[in-house]
Structure formats: structure tokens, C-alpha cells
């Protein structure tokens, strides 16, 4: 296995690297994993209080009350990230674009079918993915559902006195049960599924730095997201054509794709559009969100 040459990994600043995730995108992921790691470490001992590791943990941090405070810090981070994400997918062009690409479609059903057939050896090639594969979409929607469940039930448990005055006690028990059960499901999904896909998968082991710099090499893109890569190439060609036709400086029409600094991606593309070249720019603008 070690003889096999691996696909080269993207490094910050490499010329052929493609920026897949904007800074805002990456910050959300970082904020979330910091919050989630804190929550798992302080939460699971509470779910399994009779284990030796829970005993060691609570003794190390100084009791459940201290652990509870740390847990609420993690919760606050997650709530901030979740709230920000709502803004991001509604009011930010990059966010809207990513959210649309994350919506499940018929292609995903077909991709699952194609991959399973491929896994059983009936086909020579597996599914070809666009911007987000069904694996990544599953990750996203699992987190989406998890955030809704965990934040709602978590707030009920955080402000227990207030919610107990509103609801019968059985709903507090339900909140606790759901919080506890969903915590386990989320932890297993992260540790088994997400970690396999981004760390333990033989072509990834021990993991890449895409979460940090947001980039992928051309080879990685062609291998893992060929359809997205094709689209990026097509868009680049269209842009070149636009430059040629209008004689504009390249940076004026640069959309949020290749080698673009993340800060530029944040600003809505319409800001960058000079009013002179209306017909051609409109075309590129339209295509962007549908990717």
C-alpha cells in the first residue's frame, strides 16, 4: 500500500490548487468542531457516569458542576456557529451557493445506487461527484438535524427551571433522553463515518489540511469532485472569453473560484460587476448559484 503513489496534497499557495471552501465556510467548521469536541468530552461522562473514565474525568476537572460550565461554553460556541450559519445560508452569496449545492437531489440517489453496484464489482467506475458527494451531504444534514435537536433540548436542560415551569416534567425527561441519545448518535457518526471519510480512508490517511486552508489540488479535485472540477474549468474558460471580449482587467470579473482570496468570495459578486459589460457578466452571474 505504501508503494502506491498518493495523490498530492494541496498546500497553501500552490499554483494549481483550487479553493473549495471560503474562509467563512472554514471558520464555521472550525468553530463547530471546537464546540463539539468540548461537548463530547464533557457530555459523554454524564451519559455514562459509572465508567472508570467518567470517574477520572470528573475528578480531574473538579466535579460535575465544573464540567457543566465547560459544557455550556461548548454549547454557546455551537449556538453561535449555528445562528451564524442560518445567516450565512440565507444572506451570504457563498452560503446560498453552498446550501443549494448541499440540497439532496435525485442524482444522489443514483450515486448511492451506482456506488453500491461498483462496490460489489458490477461496474468498473463508481459515482462521479459534483461539489458535494452524497457522503458530504449526509454529513451536513446529519449535523443540521443534530444541531436542531441538541440546541433545542440543550436549551431546555440549560434553563431547566424556566422550562419546568412551562412544561410537564415528562417533557424534561424527553428532552434529556433525546439530548443524550442524539449525542451518542452524533458522536458515533463523527467518529466512525466522518473520521473514516476524512482521516482513516486509505487515500486520505492521516488526513489533509483542507479544513485549514480550504484548498485541494487539481488531482484531488479530478479524483473526488470531477464534475465540480469540470465546471470550474468551464467557468474559467467563460471568464477568459469575457475578458477577451470586454478587454477588462482579469480581477474585475473574477468569480469566487480558483485562487481567489477568501475575502473576495464574501462580497457578493454583483459588487464586483462593472456596469459597462452588462450582457456577458449577467451570464456568469446567473450560473454561479446554480452550481
Amino acid at each position: 500500500m505504501s508503494k502506491q503513489p498518493r495523490t498530492t496534497r494541496a498546500k497553501a499557495g500552490h499554483e494549481n490548487d483550487i479553493l473549495r471552501f471560503s474562509l467563512l465556510f472554514r471558520l464555521q467548521h472550525m468553530g463547530m468542531f471546537i464546540g463539539v469536541i468540548i461537548l463530547i468530552i464533557t457530555g459523554l461522562p454524564l451519559k455514562y457516569p459509572d465508567t472508570r473514565i467518567a470517574h477520572a474525568f470528573f475528578n480531574a476537572v473538579g466535579g460535575v458542576a465544573v464540567s457543566g460550565i465547560i459544557h455550556r461554553v461548548g454549547a454557546a460556541i455551537l449556538i453561535v456557529v449555528g445562528t451564524f450559519h442560518m445567516w450565512y445560508i440565507m444572506f451570504n452569496a457563498d452560503g446560498r451557493r453552498n446550501f443549494k449545492a448541499l440540497l439532496p437531489g435525485f442524482k444522489d440517489v443514483g450515486d448511492v445506487y451506482r456506488n453500491v453496484i461498483y462496490f460489489f464489482g458490477f461496474k468498473k467506475q463508481g459515482a462521479q461527484f459534483g461539489r458535494f458527494s452524497y457522503l458530504e451531504k449526509f454529513d451536513y444534514w446529519a449535523v443540521y438535524w443534530g444541531m436542531v435537536v441538541m440546541i433545542l433540548t440543550g436549551l431546555m436542560l440549560w434553563f431547566h427551571d424556566y422550562f419546568m415551569s412551562l412544561l410537564p416534567k415528562i417533557w424534561m425527561d424527553v428532552a434529556r433522553e433525546a439530548h443524550s441519545d442524539e449525542a451518542l448518535l452524533a458522536t458515533l457518526a463523527i467518529v466512525i463515518w466522518h473520521f473514516y471519510n476524512v482521516h482513516f480512508n486509505p487515500s486520505r490517511f492521516p488526513g489533509s489540511f483542507t479544513w485549514w486552508h480550504g484548498k485541494m489540488t487539481k488531482e484531488e479535485m479530478q479524483h473526488e469532485h470531477p464534475l465540480e472540477y469540470e465546471q470550474i474549468v468551464r467557468e474559467a474558460e467563460e471568464r477568459e472569453a469575457a475578458v477577451r471580449v470586454a478587454g477588462l482587467a482579469e480581477e474585475d470579473v473574477m468569480p469566487p473560484t480558483e485562487e481567489t482570496p477568501a475575502e473576495v468570495i464574501v462580497t457578493p459578486p454583483s459588487d464586483a460587476v462593472p456596469p459597462k459589460v452588462e450582457p456577458i457578466v449577467e451570464e456568469t452571474e446567473k450560473e454561479e448559484p446554480t452550481s
Binding site: 415551569s165 410537564p168 416534567k169 415528562i170 417533557w171 424534561m172 425527561d173
Partner: peptide
Amino acid sequence: KGLLKKVAQGQSHVVISSQKKDVL
């Protein structure tokens, strides 16, 4: 603080059992 009568609706020593098919 601030509890009302509703708090009495439900179990205190909570048992989740298939014999008692409640929402929990």
C-alpha cells in the same frame, strides 16, 4: 424557583419501559 403544578405530571424516579408506552 418558579415551578407550577405541571411539574407533577410525569415520573420522578424515571423508568423507560415498554410496558408503559409513553412519549418518553
